[in-house]
Design a protein around this nucleic acid. Structure first.
Lengths: 215, 215
DNA sequence: CCACAACCTGACCATATGGTCAAGAAAAAT
DNA sequence: ATTTTTCTTGACCATATGGTCAGGTTGTGG
């Protein structure tokens, strides 16, 4: 019927089902971990029979791998703002904003990622060794250049990066703890803004940026 | 035979076996998560038959709970240095040192704790609501006092605490990632010192402490 | 309208897992 | 020496889980 113009039904369904399953899987993996998650649980969450999951994703591990890869992409892309920045105040400030936003909007994915790494990165070790290693080296150079240009205090760029990752991810991975300490309620809009501002304030001051071109 | 003087054999064995099992359990739970860990795996790690574990710990969950509670105690005690400090430079500096040390020496426990919280704290929710909440409120007051006294920059104490937790825990929870980015090798003594120094430098500078009574 | 391919799913299976238990070994108490 | 208590463990069980599959349904191309 259609050569190319109108996308066919089957493809639509495939796409739709896959993302539906992935979303459900992300949630279940985040809540229960890989070992604690069951295909049945994911199926129920997605409102599909279990056998259907296995039609789209051959094994639990394949499904999990896809979830992890997806969040990794998002995670890496957050760094785009980093590169297009003029200097440390803008670059690092924007990066914090971006990563905090990911923690807020992709909480489940962040947890899955954290869980994966915590357990020795069994399925994405190669990504860590290649893509992430290169990415990290690149940003370290950028930061080092800023330091050499006297645009920020001389700190260890690598550990600064770790601190950025740690601090921003914390709001996702330990979100439950934060919520509990917030009288059991999730942070509201104002509180998220306060969190972002605090993180930026301390870190930017920590690297010797007072208030120049700060975003 | 013995009334009290010499501790009896049975008690010794009980103590010994329990800690042996707990140590093995901590490792396995850290590596595989609660769901991925199996009693058989823990038994093998401890070099005991599985049925023996069930003699000392009735269920997998009971064993897990004990592991989590143990690390929580260690975690809380790290704050002792915080209280006995004269001011922010010493207090926060020492706290960072203490928590970094925990990350280095109790990596497995830290991961178990992180995992527990990430999955919604199913077994230690009450601790979060009571002990941890009180602890946090107490430290916030201390920090606030320091701010009021003009001994550090006016930052949000709560988010400062979160940052301290996040940054220091990161070196345990994401240790695998850090190791991978360190050419696959664990941080050596000098690198750990560098990490500690970097964290302290950035955070202390971030809260407006240049170099007074810094530890 | 037909043949073909893609999609769906209830029923099923092999395996792994948490947990039990009974029978015995080791130590303590009497 | 004997009774009692604590500890040990191989064998066992009920259940849950990841995964399969055959037969059926739905959409697609001709």
């Amino acid at each position: 019927m259609n050569t190319n113009a109108r996308s066919n039904r089957k493809q639509d369904i495939r796409q739709e089902r896959e993302t539906l399953i992935l979303r459900a899987a992300e949630k279940v993996f985040a809540e229960a971990g890989f070992g604690g998650a069951t295909m049945q649980l994911i199926a129920d969450m997605a409102g599909l029979p279990k056998a259907n999951l296995h039609y789209y994703f051959p094994t639990k591990e394949a499904l999990y791998r896809q979830v992890v890869q997806n969040i990794f992409q998002i995670w890496l892309h957050a760094a785009d703002v980093f590169d297009s920045a003029d200097g440390p105040a803008e670059g690092i400030g924007a990066y914090i904003d971006a990563k905090m936003e990911i923690s807020r909007t992709h909480t489940d994915g962040s947890k899955v990622w954290a869980s994966e790494v915590m357990h020795g990165a069994p399925v994405i070790q190669d990504y860590l060794e290649t893509t992430l290693a290169e990415w990290t080296d690149g940003r370290i150079k950028v930061i080092q250049r800023w330091i050499d240009q006297g645009r920020m205090a001389p700190v260890n760029p690598r550990h600064l990066l770790y601190m950025l990752w740690a601090t921003t991810q914390h709001y996702a991975d330990f979100g439950h703890q934060i919520e509990t300490l917030n009288k059991g309620k999730p942070l509201n809009r104002a509180q998220w803004a306060e969190a972002k501002a605090s993180v930026k304030q301390i870190i930017l001051a920590g690297i010797g940026i007072t208030r120049d071109t700060a975003a």
